[in-house]
């Protein structure tokens, strides 16, 4: 794989401008990407300034009053802060501890399917829910679970059990959230793993088979080690979004009776900041979340490298 790259190495002795001219087409291909990042990712970063201001649209970023860390102080001193923190972490850990391994397991299972047609059909089927919006997914969930004629509650009643108020209960909120996440996105999450699995050399399996390894043994000693670096990279990337939860999903599922376990940073910012036009405060909470994400990525990357894996940078 490294073969073609080596041919460019001798060029490094020449001046940069000449090298650039030589590779001008490659640079041309790079430009749209660069422009995209500059315009849509770097320029908006100035907006972060507003989290240290009392931002007023008509005064603009330059004219608004500077207030230092006031918005951050307010956020950390909110009585809700720890509730939000707890809820967010809880769901984030469920995401990491249940959803993420599940996608790997699902990918491994798909990989074990021998019949190509069956495999492809099954793969397509589990991708489909990903293309539904959260509004639809939550809507289906409501239809199934409501106490007023919901299918599951009717079934429970018909079997002589008491109806369960799934949608308005604190204890059911988190299970429902994770189940919806799995139903909607677990299939989609397998894609990259499947691609990695396809790249595992068949020779390794042949060798293992000759040595008399069972399927489980092969999975454990051949398949998993082969895709380990992909798993690590995806894990690191996922950590970056650790506390960015699906806003829509949670927003749609939260109500008066489960707010205590359901409200997370994202829904809080929407309710308190955006809807009330408090741009600076919203930006401050957003900045806080991004900082946590950055710290997690840096630490995870450092750890990964410590253990001899390739990081994301």
């Amino acid at each position: 794989m490294t073969q073609p790259m080596q041919s460019t190495i001798p060029d490094k002795k020449k001046p940069l401008a000449i090298r650039m001219w030589k590779e001008r087409w490659l640079y041309l291909f790079l430009t749209p990407g660069l422009i995209y990042f500059i315009i849509f990712k770097y320029m908006p970063m100035w907006g972060v300034l507003m989290s240290f201001q009392n931002y007023q649209p008509h005064q603009g970023l330059l004219g608004s009053q500077w207030v230092g860390l006031r918005h951050f102080e307010r956020f950390f001193n909110e009585p809700e802060f720890w509730m939000l923190f707890r809820n967010t972490l809880y769901i984030a850990f469920m995401d990491l501890g249940i959803f993420f391994p599940l996608t790997i397991i699902l990918a491994l299972m798909l990989n074990e399917i021998g019949r190509e047609l069956f495999k492809k059909t099954f793969q397509t089927l589990i991708y489909v829910p990903h293309f539904l919006s959260w509004v639809v997914v939550v809507g289906i969930c409501y239809l199934l679970l409501t106490t007023e004629g919901g299918t599951i509650n009717e079934l429970l009643a018909a079997m002589g059990f008491e109806k369960v108020n799934f949608l308005m209960s604190e204890s059911w909120f988190r299970p429902l959230i994770i189940m919806q996440m799995i139903w909607k996105d677990a299939g989609w999450g397998t894609i990259i793993f499947l691609a990695a699995l396809a790249g595992v050399s068949p020779h390794l399996y042949e060798a293992a088979r000759i040595d008399g390894a069972s399927r489980m043994r092969m999975m454990w000693h051949v398949t998993l080690p082969s895709i380990r670096s992909v798993i690590v990279i995806l894990l690191i990337l996922r950590l970056g979004n650790f506390i960015d939860l699906g806003f829509e999903q949670i927003f749609l599922m939260v109500n008066a009776l489960n707010r205590e376990v359901g409200e997370v940073f994202d829904t809080y910012v929407y309710r308190v900041g955006m809807q009330q036009g408090q741009f600076s405060y919203s930006a401050a909470v957003g900045l806080f979340k991004s900082s946590v994400g950055l710290v997690l990525i840096v630490v995870a990357n450092w750890l990964a490298k410590k253990f001899g894996e390739e990081g994301v940078y």
Partner: peptide, 25 residues
């Protein structure tokens, strides 16, 4: 979920600032 994340990011600093810059210009 990606959609939700993206949307939230937009809600945060992204869109407001971006839109301000773009429309401002």
């Amino acid at each position: 979920m990606n959609k939700g994340q993206r949307q939230m990011k937009q809600f945060m600093v992204g869109t407001i600032a971006l839109a301000m810059l773009v429309t401002g210009c």
